[in-house]
Nucleic acid binder design. Structure first.
Lengths: 227, 227
DNA sequence: TGTACATCAGTGAACGCGCGTTCACTGATGTAC
DNA sequence: TGTACATCAGTGAACGCGCGTTCACTGATGTAC
């Protein structure tokens, strides 16, 4: 956590060393605590222990910092999905279940990132890093869905495929959002948070996947980590 | 639009007559234009042509006004769904398709309301009107899904049913959000906005409904209004 | 190994601005008699 | 029908605050010779 510029036991450091990354972390937390409406560069600076004008050296303005957080958000989502695919097995639907579960768990673990990546916030939407990161995350779903349907990759214009992508993405994305926004609990108020994250999420994914693979896919899930 | 208090041809009116409703309308538009981070009571007052302190007479603070907008949002959603059910027919899945389509169209027609109702914003979450309105909207889906499955209404604790509700809600909600947030276009960049709202939305709903009713339900949709 | 200098990274005081909120007020409306 | 008065609905000036941004600065690091 400490920078290479640090020379003594004192906390004061002139050259931080990795202020950019630190501001992104701190910004993410601020976003989770206060939402966009409470997100300010000055508060980020304060939390990073740095002068009020320091953040603009790295990001220009609020939009620049939010864009950086969104990019990290998409990259992290891609990595979480790819990691979940390792050892997911080859049973029909198993790979789709793995990335769907990873998507939901990622949103819950990093709601700040998730909201800024997918939400309605001021971003530099044409920022090349952001565009690349966003495309990469969606491409994982497209690839796995193609494979599941035994179709060749590449061509666009197949609207049945587009709809399949839209359904899979919408269902998982909607579940994640309703969960982190506290709405999903209304489905059955007698259940607690963990039951939603594990049992209900599993069953919902199972229902979704069945609509892609036909019969009931592989065994009864719950390779899921508890939280 | 003019108030009963108005006495002459002049625009200046002392007693507005329906300032509360007017502020809600104006606030909704401001929210669509600038998001929560640009939402201020003073700007609402300015747009309503009223003094800066007027809004707090009706809503107390920003949270109060947002809560009122959210309540209107839920109520409008319920009404849109119930209206879509009139004349939806009785074919299996037809009623589910109707409320799903209404949900998506409503989100697109009123993104400000939609975001404040379902988003992550400062609201008085225990406000009785808000709670009632939110419950009512979800209850429509629960009712129709129960009917589709031929189950009696009432009891909770059926997790398969909970998962079915979660899937239907998540899919429709996710589709709506990804669409209004401009993300869904990444599914196939060659398609335009109208194609998503009509063709892709129809196909996606069809896929979803098939997972509830088994075979392909009734005829090929598109009773949808163009936009 | 040492020196001079350029560049990088962050400082801190200052500015003007729009915000929420307060408070004594006043014009319009409604009601009792 | 008229009058007195209470209440309702909004005014407008004032306040203190935290914000983004600017700007001349300075300490630390890296490089050329």
């Amino acid at each position: 956590m400490k920078a290479r510029g640090e020379s003594s036991g004192e906390g004061a450091v002139y050259h931080h060393g990795d202020l950019r990354r630190h501001l992104i972390e701190v910004g993410e937390r601020l976003l989770e605590e206060r939402g966009v409406e409470g997100f300010t560069l000055r508060e980020c600076a304060r939390r990073a222990g740095v002068s009020p004008s320091a953040p603009s050296h790295h990001f220009g303005n609020v939009t620049g910092l939010l864009t950086a957080i969104a990019t990290v958000g998409f990259d992290g989502l891609s990595e979480a999905q790819e990691a979940a695919l390792v050892g997911a097995g080859d049973a029909p639907g198993a790979r789709l279940r793995a990335i769907g579960g990873a998507y939901i768990r990622y949103a819950l673990a990093h709601p700040g990132r998730f909201r800024v990546a997918f939400g309605h916030m001021p971003l530099n939407h044409e920022d090349p890093d952001l565009v690349t990161a966003g495309t990469r995350a969606l491409e994982i779903l497209r690839r796995e869905l193609r494979a599941l349907r035994g179709e060749p990759t590449g061509q666009t214009g197949d609207r049945d495929f587009d709809a399949a992508v839209a359904l899979a993405w919408s269902a998982v994305h909607g579940f994640a959002r309703l969960l982190i926004d506290g709405q999903l609990f209304a489905v059955d108020p007698s259940l607690d948070h963990d039951t939603y994250l594990n049992d209900i999420a599993d069953r919902t994914l199972e229902l979704l996947i069945r609509s892609f693979v036909g019969g009931s896919s592989s065994g009864p899930k719950s390779t899921r980590r508890r939280t």
